[in-house]
Structure formats: structure tokens, C-alpha cells
């Protein structure tokens, strides 16, 4: 087992008149090698939640276990936790600060107190994982394109060699090309490196395509936790939370409503195409 969250509560401004639940009794376990999607409208608590998983925020009550150990126990090594549970913030390129790409990626492993050779080996490995070759090493990170900058920032976290990678809207503000590049790299890390991925995104289409499990947050509470196909069946409830299902889900349900006989758990274009073609041939 990997990450376990038990009765997690987070209250902002505790003890004042403005106190407000940001997280309310959240429970789940994420196993090694899962690809979990985390959705919820702005302010639903999902950003607060992920910052608990690497100890950047401390819960008001409840516990977080990483590999069976309570991270709030006395003497628990938070720095080590942060290297194992890598967190890529929204617009991560805003954290770049070094004169060249390579030094910036070295920052994380250097903070872990590793030897120079090991630091550089990790930086090289991380950059190759995000698809940036040696020609980028000496470039200033500030002169790259938006998508490239973001990949450097992700490499900066990967160089810590995390077991779990959490990404907060890693494609925000990118064009379709930049978006596909990032998502393909993430999915590759999951497939080839067996990395546990927790992806926060607003795009239901991306969730349908990549995530094996979907956790839906609303007003600080976990409301759904299931395979994307199952979650999207509740598209009406999702809408009430200011969310939506992939467009394809709507097409499929409308077809069913009018009497067409196709399955109700189709979420991608390819699935819907095959099902509609099969149904038309049968009919």
C-alpha cells in the first residue's frame, strides 16, 4: 500500500469567526502503481488535499500514512516524504530560477544531500524522461516555450526520484500540442516506470482517457471514488457540482433515451464509434 488518508479534516482559520472546512472527513487509500484522477470545481478542496499528501499542509485532525507510517508521528522525516511524494504545482514554470535548465533540475536532488555525480545523473535521467535532450541543458529556462518550461519544471520534481507523482493541472494554459506532450509523458511514466500518478484536471476527456480511478471532491468532501466510467454515469450529479462528464457521455445517454441500444458506460470517441457502428449493423 502506498498512501492512506484517514478521517482527514482541514479547517481554515480555526478558532476564529471565519473558520471554514476545506476538507471534511476524507478517507481513501491509493495503492502503488495506480493512476488516479482528482476532480472538483475551483475551491472544492482538491488543491488543499494534495498538499496534505506530502506534508506541506498539516491536517486539523485525521492522519496520513505513507507506506504504513503516520507522517504526523514525532521525528518523521518530512524532507524524505517530499522526495518520495513529488508534487508539481499549477503553473510550475513559475518556480524556475537557475541560469540554465540543467542546474534548475539539479536543485531538488542537491537538496537531498546527494553526491554531485548522483545529482547530475538524476537530472539527466529526469530531463530525458520529459523528452528534453542535451541541447537544452545549457539554455536559460526562461527562453523556452511554455510547454518546454513546464517540462523542465516537472523534471525538477522527477529528479528527486519520487514514487508518487502528484500534478495539479499540469496542462493549464497550454495549447493542444503542449497538452498532449505533457499528458503522454505522464502516462509513459505510469506505464514504463510504474509510478503512482495523481492527476488534478478539469478536463473530463483527459480523465476518461488516462485515469484508472476517479476521485471527485465537492465542498471539501469526497463524493465519488470509482472507475471513470462509473463516475460519469452520475453526470447529472456532477453537473450540480459545477462539473460535467465528457461530451461523449452526453451523446451516448441521449441516444439511449431515444431508444438506441448501446451501453451506458462509453466515455471516449473510439468507444462510442465502435458501439454505434455495432448497434447500427445489428439494427
Amino acid at each position: 500500500m502506498s498512501i492512506k488518508v484517514e478521517h482527514l479534516n482541514h479547517i481554515y482559520g480555526e478558532g476564529t469567526a471565519f473558520s471554514q472546512y476545506a476538507l471534511k472527513d476524507v478517507n481513501f487509500t491509493i495503492e502503488d502503481g495506480e493512476f488516479v484522477g482528482l476532480i472538483g470545481h475551483t475551491g472544492s478542496g482538491k488543491s488543499t488535499l494534495i498538499q496534505h499528501l506530502n506534508g506541506l499542509l498539516r491536517a486539523s485532525s485525521g492522519a496520513v500514512y505513507y507506506n504504513g507510517e503516520n507522517i504526523y508521528a514525532d521525528g518523521y522525516d518530512m524532507k524524505k516524504l517530499r522526495s518520495k511524494v513529488g508534487l508539481v504545482f499549477q503553473y510550475p514554470e513559475y518556480q524556475l530560477f537557475e541560469v540554465d535548465v540543467f542546474s534548475d533540475v539539479c536543485f531538488g536532488p542537491r537538496n537531498l544531500g546527494l553526491e554531485k555525480e548522483e545529482v547530475e545523473a538524476r537530472a539527466r535521467e529526469a530531463l530525458s524522461l520529459v523528452g528534453l535532450d542535451e541541447s537544452f541543458y545549457a539554455q536559460s529556462p526562461f527562453e523556452l516555450s511554455g510547454g518546454q518550461k513546464r517540462r523542465v519544471a516537472i523534471a525538477g520534481v522527477l529528479a528527486m526520484e519520487p514514487e508518487v507523482l502528484i500534478l495539479d493541472e499540469p496542462t493549464a494554459g497550454l495549447d493542444p500540442r503542449g497538452r498532449d506532450e505533457i499528458l503522454d509523458k505522464i502516462s509513459q511514466l505510469h506505464r514504463e516506470k510504474g509510478m503512482t500518478i495523481i492527476l488534478v484536471s478539469h478536463s473530463m476527456e483527459d480523465m476518461a482517457r488516462y485515469a484508472g480511478r476517479l476521485i471527485v471532491m465537492n465542498h471539501g468532501e469526497k463524493v465519488f471514488d470509482d472507475a471513470p466510467k462509473e463516475v460519469f454515469k452520475h453526470y447529472k450529479e456532477l453537473e450540480k457540482m459545477g462539473l460535467a462528464a465528457p461530451q461523449i457521455t452526453y451523446v451516448v445517454h441521449e441516444l439511449r433515451e431515444h431508444g438506441a441500444e448501446i451501453a451506458d458506460d462509453l466515455t471516449t470517441v473510439a468507444e462510442a464509434r465502435d458501439a454505434i457502428l455495432a448497434a447500427l449493423r445489428k439494427g
Binding site: 513559475y94 518556480q95 531538488g108 520534481v157
Partner: peptide
């Protein structure tokens, strides 16, 4: 935010 992001990188 930047402080937290760098802390996530072990700062």
C-alpha cells in the same frame, strides 16, 4: 505558492 513549490523540491 513559490515557497511551497520549492519546499516540495526539498528546499
Amino acid at each position: 505558492k513559490i515557497m511551497k513549490a520549492q519546499m516540495a523540491r526539498g528546499a
